[in-house]
């Protein structure tokens, strides 16, 4: 009897732990959501505002497909080279000001390009394999169309004045990426189906299963 009770307790405890981990490792909580990238990429430096030492590059300059297709796409190494062909520490004067810790990552990118070796970026925002998310349609909703004020059930849920600029539109779901040295889904940026459905319902978009599951 005692053994059966112990076994039952162990099984229940196991199930509880598994459910606990799987629930909290999903995007709004984000256990293990910021994987180590092969080369650190600080969005603060690239996309951050100029006043804070960033370069304010537009999102769609690197994520080129985001306004035209389903996937936002991670840029090829050649896209890094558009800037880093020049910004590589070689023409900093005087040469003593080159910070080796800072430039070692740029040198890695240049090496990858020289070796014809793509960078295996780790995916951060992941939806399950049976979900098909189209960036283009969502960007279009947020950046084009009639001016209106909407409250979307994602992020901080403040009223948003449409239409937005593209980088602001990205921030609605992805948060302030330009302020993140290491990209990670933040609190309340859920990638769960309930969030998708809430938003689709509020904006009278179709909630047919085949819109996302094909």
């Amino acid at each position: 009897m005692a053994i059966a009770g112990l076994a039952a307790t162990a099984i229940v405890a196991f199930i509880v732990v598994v459910l606990f981990i799987s629930w909290f490792s999903n995007p709004p909580f984000g256990w293990g959501n910021a994987p180590d990238q092969p080369i650190p990429f600080p969005h603060t430096v690239h996309a951050g505002p100029v006043e804070e030492g960033g370069h304010a590059i537009q999102c769609e300059f690197c994520h080129r497909n985001v306004t035209t297709g389903a996937a936002a796409t991670v840029p090829a190494v050649e896209v890094c080279l558009i800037c880093h062909k020049q910004v590589n520490g070689a023409n900093v004067t005087p040469a003593a000001e080159v910070d080796p810790d800072k430039h070692i990552n740029i040198q890695r990118v240049l090496d990858r390009h020289a070796d014809n070796n793509p960078i295996d970026w780790e995916r951060v925002h992941r939806v399950p394999d049976h979900v098909r998310f189209v960036h283009e349609a969502h960007i279009r909703f947020l950046t084009q169309g009639e001016p209106e004020t909407v409250t979307l059930p994602i992020g901080d849920e403040k009223p948003i004045n449409l239409p937005l600029e593209v980088p602001e539109a990205c921030s609605v779901c992805h948060g302030d990426i330009a302020g993140m040295a290491e990209v990670q889904p933040q609190d309340s940026q859920s990638l769960k189906m309930g969030t998708c459905l809430d938003c689709h319902r509020e904006n009278s978009v179709s909630t047919d299963c085949t819109v996302c599951h094909k």
Partner: peptide, 29 residues
């Protein structure tokens, strides 16, 4: 655009619903 179905489920012709959705998005755009 199409899910790779795992083992143990039923599947069937969808009239290529992924193309229908893509067509819709193109028309909307």
């Amino acid at each position: 655009d199409v899910t790779v179905r795992s083992r143990g489920i039923t599947e069937k012709c969808t009239f290529c619903v992924q193309r229908i959705r893509r067509g819709e998005i193109q028309v909307e755009a």
